[in-house]
Lab assay of single mutants.
Amino acid sequence: MISLIAALAVDRVIGMENAMPWNLPADLAWFKRNTLNKPVIMGRHTWESIGRPLPGRKNIILSSQPGTDDRVTWVKSVDEAIAACGDVPEIMVIGGGRVYEQFLPKAQKLYLTHIDAEVEGDTHFPDYEPDDWESVFSEFHDADAQNSHSYCFEILERR
C-alpha cells in the first residue's frame, strides 16, 4: 500500500524555501509514529532540507540527478522507488510537492495534518478530489505552549 503523509496549511501550503513555516512538535511526533519502520520516499529537495537519513526507516530518494550519499537509496523513477521498498505492507511518501503529485494517483491512504495557519509558501500539496477519499480518523488539537497553531490529524482512505 502506498501512503502519503503531509502537513498542510491553508491553501495546501506545505513548504517555503525548503522548510515548513510553522513550529508543531506534535506533528513531528505524528510523522515519526506513522513512518517508523517503514520505507520513506522523498525528493532530493526534501532530502536536502532534512540533511540526514531518517533513523529507523529505509530512505529512498527520487531524483533525476541521483546523489552520492550511500546512506540512502537513490532512484530515478516512481517504479524504481516502489521496487526499492521491497515487499512491505506500507510505503510512506513524505514529499515534496512534485513527489506527492507523482504518487497521489497510486496512493491508497493519506495521513494529513491540517494546520490552521495562513502562511506564504512556494510548495503545495497537490489538489485531490475529496469525494474519492473517506475520512477514517480525525483528531483536532488547539494551539498550545509547544505548538504554534491549532491542527487536525486526519487519515483518508481511497474509496
Rank of each mutant, 00 (worst) to 15 (best):
I2R: 00
S3C: 00
S3N: 13
L4R: 01
I5L: 04
I5S: 00
I5M: 00
I5G: 02
A6F: 14
A6Y: 14
A7S: 02
L8W: 04
V10E: 07
V10G: 04
D11W: 02
R12L: 14
R12G: 01
R12F: 03
V13P: 00
V13T: 11
I14G: 00
M16K: 03
M16S: 12
A19R: 02
A19E: 03
M20N: 01
P21V: 04
W22F: 09
N23G: 10
N23E: 06
L24G: 15
P25I: 13
A26L: 03
A26I: 07
A26M: 02
A26K: 01
A26F: 06
A26Q: 03
L28E: 00
L28T: 00
L28F: 12
A29L: 08
W30M: 15
W30Q: 13
F31E: 00
K32E: 02
N34A: 04
N34V: 05
L36M: 06
L36I: 07
N37A: 05
K38C: 14
K38V: 10
P39R: 06
P39T: 15
P39Q: 07
P39L: 11
P39S: 08
V40R: 00
V40E: 02
V40G: 07
I41T: 11
M42S: 10
M42H: 12
R44M: 09
R44F: 04
R44S: 15
H45D: 03
H45E: 02
H45P: 15
T46N: 02
T46G: 02
W47A: 14
W47C: 10
W47V: 15
E48N: 07
E48F: 13
E48C: 13
S49A: 07
S49K: 01
I50L: 15
I50M: 13
G51R: 07
R52F: 05
P53D: 07
P53T: 10
P53V: 05
P53C: 04
L54P: 01
L54I: 04
L54C: 01
P55M: 07
P55T: 10
P55K: 06
G56D: 06
K58A: 07
K58E: 05
K58Q: 10
K58W: 05
K58V: 09
N59C: 11
N59M: 04
N59A: 12
N59D: 11
I60V: 10
I60M: 10
I60Y: 15
I60E: 02
I60N: 02
I61L: 14
I61R: 02
I61P: 01
L62Y: 02
L62A: 15
L62M: 12
S63P: 00
S63A: 12
S63N: 01
S63D: 00
S64E: 10
S64K: 09
S64P: 02
Q65K: 05
P66T: 06
P66R: 11
P66L: 08
G67S: 11
G67R: 03
G67H: 04
T68V: 08
D69G: 10
D69M: 05
D69P: 10
D69R: 09
D69F: 07
D70Q: 12
D70P: 10
D70N: 05
V72D: 12
V72K: 04
V72N: 12
T73N: 05
W74L: 11
W74A: 10
V75F: 07
V75M: 09
K76T: 06
K76C: 06
K76V: 11
K76H: 03
S77C: 06
S77G: 05
S77N: 10
S77K: 14
V78K: 11
D79F: 05
D79V: 05
D79L: 04
E80V: 09
E80G: 08
E80P: 05
A81T: 14
I82P: 03
I82E: 08
A84V: 08
A84R: 05
C85M: 15
C85A: 10
C85S: 08
C85Q: 13
G86S: 11
G86E: 09
G86Q: 11
D87P: 12
D87G: 10
V88I: 13
V88T: 12
P89E: 07
P89L: 08
P89Y: 07
P89F: 09
E90T: 03
M92Q: 12
M92K: 02
V93P: 02
I94L: 14
I94C: 04
G95P: 01
G96L: 04
G97S: 04
R98G: 14
R98V: 01
V99M: 12
E101G: 12
E101Q: 08
Q102G: 10
Q102K: 08
Q102I: 15
F103L: 03
P105Q: 09
K106Q: 15
K106T: 10
K106Y: 13
Q108L: 08
K109D: 01
Y111F: 12
L112N: 02
L112Q: 04
H114L: 15
H114T: 14
I115V: 06
I115Y: 04
D116T: 15
D116W: 15
D116S: 14
D116H: 15
A117Q: 10
E118S: 14
E118H: 15
V119R: 15
V119K: 04
V119E: 15
V119M: 08
E120H: 12
E120L: 13
G121K: 00
D122K: 00
D122T: 02
D122R: 00
T123P: 00
T123Y: 01
H124Q: 15
H124I: 10
H124A: 13
P126S: 11
P126G: 07
P126R: 11
P126C: 14
D127E: 11
D127G: 13
D127F: 14
D127I: 14
Y128F: 03
E129C: 10
E129K: 13
P130E: 13
D131V: 04
D131E: 03
D131I: 05
D132S: 12
D132G: 10
D132L: 11
D132K: 12
W133V: 02
E134P: 12
E134Y: 09
E134K: 11
E134G: 12
S135Y: 09
V136Y: 08
F137H: 09
S138Y: 03
E139D: 06
E139R: 07
E139Q: 07
F140A: 13
F140M: 13
F140H: 07
H141D: 02
H141N: 05
H141K: 05
D142L: 12
D142Y: 10
D142I: 07
D142A: 14
A143F: 09
A143I: 06
A143V: 07
D144T: 05
A145P: 05
A145R: 07
A145T: 06
A145M: 07
N147P: 01
N147F: 00
S148Y: 00
H149Q: 02
H149R: 06
H149G: 03
S150Q: 02
S150N: 03
S150F: 06
S150L: 03
S150T: 04
Y151W: 06
C152E: 10
F153H: 04
F153N: 05
F153V: 06
F153S: 05
E154L: 15
E154T: 15
E154I: 14
I155K: 07
I155S: 06
I155W: 12
I155F: 06
L156K: 15
E157C: 06
E157V: 05
E157T: 06
R158H: 07
R158G: 09
R159I: 13
R159N: 12
R159Y: 12
